[in-house]
Design a protein around this nucleic acid. Structure first.
Length: 265
DNA sequence: TTCCATGTTCCGCA
DNA sequence: TTGCGGAACATGGA
């Protein structure tokens, strides 16, 4: 699930359970998830320290460590998640990495498909710069003017631009579809054909959709009824016009839309 | 068996 | 430089 709202939920979980607790042990049941640093070095870095505070940029979660410079970097790929386990609780399937705190409670990184990543970065600033990330989609600096400036002048399809992490950080395939559906914009619309008023509206819708999703714990079941997400199947009815939801392919990804509500521009 | 899946990255081409 | 399609990564469900 991990797009911006899902990562926000993991961050809240980490903040509520795992800050300021001494990390006694770090273990990997599959160290392929660890990138750019050895298991030995990674656990030496963490052991005896604490998670001080967390920070989110797009789909990335960065966690500052006590007593020093590096931050732990977590990216959840397509199937990653965080689980908090009390001492007696068993680790879920596909647990790849476990942080054990003194007392025995644990924070577990789950990732079935192993497309997620765990690593170490010097600072949030250098990380974002090196990755070339665009502004966090829900960041304060992402106001309407910035949004319009970033998008105007770009070529290509609007859905592709929204999902491009170096343009805007945090939106993936599911929420790109949701945002464009809510804004009544066809995902294949050429960005250059969207006028300023349309982009302004798209910005408002983007913030509203992402904020709503975060509030609802990124749980599709809890989203408003007029959202597309619970209806991501071809042939279901559009919650707004009762027309038929269509599935197409955009930039290699399955894309759902209502062709009646979303006209190509 | 084949296709598809919430992500990222690299390559070749236009 | 920008954008696109395809493939790769790794795993499992329909």
């Amino acid at each position: 699930m991990p797009e911006l709202p899902d990562v926000a939920v993991y961050r809240k979980l980490l903040d509520a359970t795992s800050l300021q607790r001494t990390i006694e042990q770090v273990s990997f049941s599959d160290s392929r998830i660890l990138r750019g640093v050895s298991v030995r070095k990674f656990s030496d870095l963490l052991k005896g320290n604490r998670f001080e505070r967390s920070l989110q940029h797009g789909k990335n979660l960065l966690v500052e460590l006590s007593g020093g410079s590096p931050h732990v970097w977590l990216h959840f790929g397509m199937t990653g998640a965080l689980h908090y386990l009390e001492k007696h609780e068993k680790e879920p399937a596909y647990t790849r990495c476990v942080f054990t705190f003194s007392g025995g409670d644990r924070l577990a990184v789950i990732d079935q498909r192993l497309l997620g990543k765990i690593g170490v970065v010097e600072s949030p600033e250098s990380f974002s710069r090196e990755k070339g990330l665009g502004p966090h989609a829900l960041g304060e600096e992402m106001n309407a003017e910035r949004f319009i400036r970033i998008l105007s002048g770009r070529k290509g399809m609007i859905k592709t631009a929204l999902m491009n992490q170096s343009v805007i950080a945090g939106i993936g395939n599911i929420y790109a579809d949701e945002i464009l559906y809510q804004a009544s914009i066809h995902p294949e619309s050429d960005v250059r054909r969207l006028d300023e008023a349309t982009l302004r509206d798209l910005h408002t819708v983007m913030k509203r959709v992402l904020r709503t999703a975060v509030e609802k714990g990124a749980d599709a079941e809890k989203l408003p009824r007029d959202f597309l997400m619970p209806n991501r199947r071809a042939g279901t009815k559009c919650p707004r016009c009762r027309g038929s939801i269509e599935k197409i392919r955009v930039h290699g990804r399955g894309t759902y839309l209502c062709p009646r509500c979303q006209k190509r521009e």
